[in-house]
């Protein structure tokens, strides 16, 4: 465990090298908030509620969802894996005495811990700048459930991106697929609009998928909605993490034999 803590620490320190990136990352979180502020500001003119949300409740949802989406930085894992497998430098990860997936998980932990403070700071700044009457749940058990779900969701996304990355062993070029994945994830994780606006049948289907629990449900829970889904949500997310781990184990053993260390 100590070696993974060291990897996390190393990546935490690495972030300090790109100081301008930190500031720009913070500034660019405003994109989603501005979108929500302008779109819903127009929609809420002359309306009290839309799909159960008040204007400030809706903006609070976007603030929390944007904060969580910004924390979820694992998409770099699939890109890094894919690039290194293609150019042959993936061998670097095979010769160090760590589990490769564990390495990337530790890397993600180091990065997320670093950005946690700055993303939180950005969220607070936007709340004040846009004059949002921030809606936040006060029940400790719900906050705890949301916290567990967020951790499971972040871990699931690391697993998913690790899995997609190792598909390069088989399919060689996956960058187009990764970009399509990012477009679809923005919808199914509720970062463009709350999923509750979608037809009920679609939402029911999404409840079976893990993406519902990555940022959408935690954001809803923290704004005081969907409380009855808190515990089942944790169970479903945990089951998905186990399933994903089994899938990774199977395909890793199958595909790693294809790697010849000279690039594609």
């Amino acid at each position: 465990m100590r070696k993974y803590a060291e990897i996390a620490k190393a990546y935490l320190k690495t972030q300090l090298v790109w100081r301008a990136d930190i500031i720009f990352n913070m500034i660019f979180t405003v994109g989603r908030i501005l979108f929500a502020y302008l779109l819903w500001g127009t929609i809420f003119e002359g309306r009290e509620q839309v799909a159960g949300f008040t204007f400030h409740g809706m903006l609070s949802y976007y603030i929390i969802n944007s904060f969580l989406t910004q924390l979820e930085m694992s998409s770099g894992i699939s890109g890094e894996l894919s690039a290194r497998i293609r150019n042959g430098t993936f061998s670097k990860y095979l010769v160090i005495p760590v589990n490769v997936e564990g390495y990337f998980t530790a890397m993600e932990v180091g990065t997320v811990v670093f950005y946690l403070f700055f993303d939180f700071l950005a969220a607070v700044v936007w709340i004040f700048l846009f004059g949002i009457e921030f809606v936040f749940v006060k029940t400790f058990s719900i906050i705890l459930c949301a916290g567990i779900m967020i951790l499971l969701g972040l871990f699931f996304m690391v697993q998913l991106n690790f899995f997609l990355g190792i598909l390069t062993f088989q399919y060689e070029e996956i960058s187009t697929f990764l970009m399509i994945k990012d477009n679809l994830l923005a919808l199914v994780t509720g970062s463009i609009i709350p999923l509750t606006l979608l037809p009920e049948r679609v939402v029911e289907l999404m409840r079976l998928l893990p993406f519902y629990y990555v940022t959408y449900l935690p954001s809803m829970l923290l704004t005081g909605n969907n409380r009855q889904e808190a515990v089942p949500g944790i169970v479903i997310m945990a089951v998905w993490c186990i399933v994903m781990q089994l899938v990774i184990h199977f395909y890793w053993n199958k595909y790693i034999r294809k790697y010849d260390g000279v690039g594609i």
Partner: peptide, 22 residues
């Protein structure tokens, strides 16, 4: 085509969902 096509299809779905409510 696939990347941008998926992006604009998502946009259509988003506004379809919004217009179901307003």
């Amino acid at each position: 085509f696939f990347v941008d096509g998926s992006l604009f299809l998502v946009q259509l779905l988003v506004f379809d969902a919004v217009y179901a409510n307003v």
